[in-house]
Nucleic acid binder design. Structure first.
Lengths: 147, 147
DNA sequence: CACGCTATGTCAGAATGCTGACATGGAGCA
DNA sequence: TGCTCCATGTCAGCATTCTGACATAGCGTG
């Protein structure tokens, strides 16, 4: 017995997911504004902090944006002296990106702010519930075509 | 004992949430493309299906976009004859929007496609897990400033 | 070796969304 | 009544992102 439309949107997992995502996005924007960082810029720094030497294309995939968008992000961050890219590729066309000292400092500050946002957002859930939530969400991306 | 940065991003609830959101968005785009509908347009139809007579501003809030963006969405959908807005407001400035017959038909088709996407996306989870996931996510938005 | 295939970086144009601003209509209050 | 305050609809300008396209570098296979 299927219903005609989605029905009460609050009962749709997708809609609630979008709600939480929107809240997180807004909160992150506010938290990063004092640092003059956008969310994609922060994501880029965080990815490079965890995995130095990533290429533009790889960063784009992991940050869920196009190569072109990430290219602008990298250029902007490079102008600000937060990261470095070699003038020519050591292998293939990929230019491995590295954080500068300033970049690492900025990352630490931004990361603290973002972790505070996450902590606040998921505070209604117990530690066990948060872990379970992460597991459940991870299970959904596992079967996703992108990976 | 707190770590310096977020650390392994796969262990961050926020990052995994963003992953799932990106997957859902992509899948919805593909599912709605044959109908020549964007995700915000579909969201608008779905909201009006559930609650006829919503104003532009109210639709914007519930679809997580600005009034200006929703205004363009409404204009486009009105041009296509999927919804109607009175020429002048019956009360205040708010223009109550209603789906047309074509709009309701389009909504039914789109809704079926989107529900298929959701079903596929969350298929790794059991029915109980999906309900629990929705509950947990809902708990997070409950304390959010936006409501 | 030559060819096709894939991936990467980048340029240009279009689409989409947002910020700032303004006028209007209604509610609340002195 | 007159004033303030707030919400709504809408216009203009800007920022960000995406789509399409192209050249280049490596890799595999014949």
């Amino acid at each position: 017995m299927e219903q005609e439309t989605v029905g009460d949107l609050e009962l749709s997992v997708g809609y609630v997911l979008k709600q939480v995502h929107a809240s997180m996005r807004t909160a992150m924007d506010e938290a990063l504004r004092p640092l003059d960082l956008t969310v994609p810029q922060y994501a880029c720094l965080e990815l490079l902090g965890q995995t130095p030497g990533l290429s533009n294309a790889e960063l784009a995939r992991r940050a869920f944006v196009t190569r072109q968008s990430m290219n602008l992000v990298l250029r902007r961050l490079q102008e600000r002296g937060l990261l470095t890219r070699p003038d020519q590729a050591p292998h293939g066309r990929a230019l491995p990106t590295e954080l500068t000292r300033d970049g690492r400092t900025m990352l630490r500050t931004a990361s603290v702010a973002v972790r505070a946002v996450e902590k606040q957002l998921f505070s209604p859930l117990s530690r066990e519930q948060q872990l379970r939530l992460r597991e459940d969400l991870a299970a959904c991306v596992a079967t996703s075509p992108t990976s």
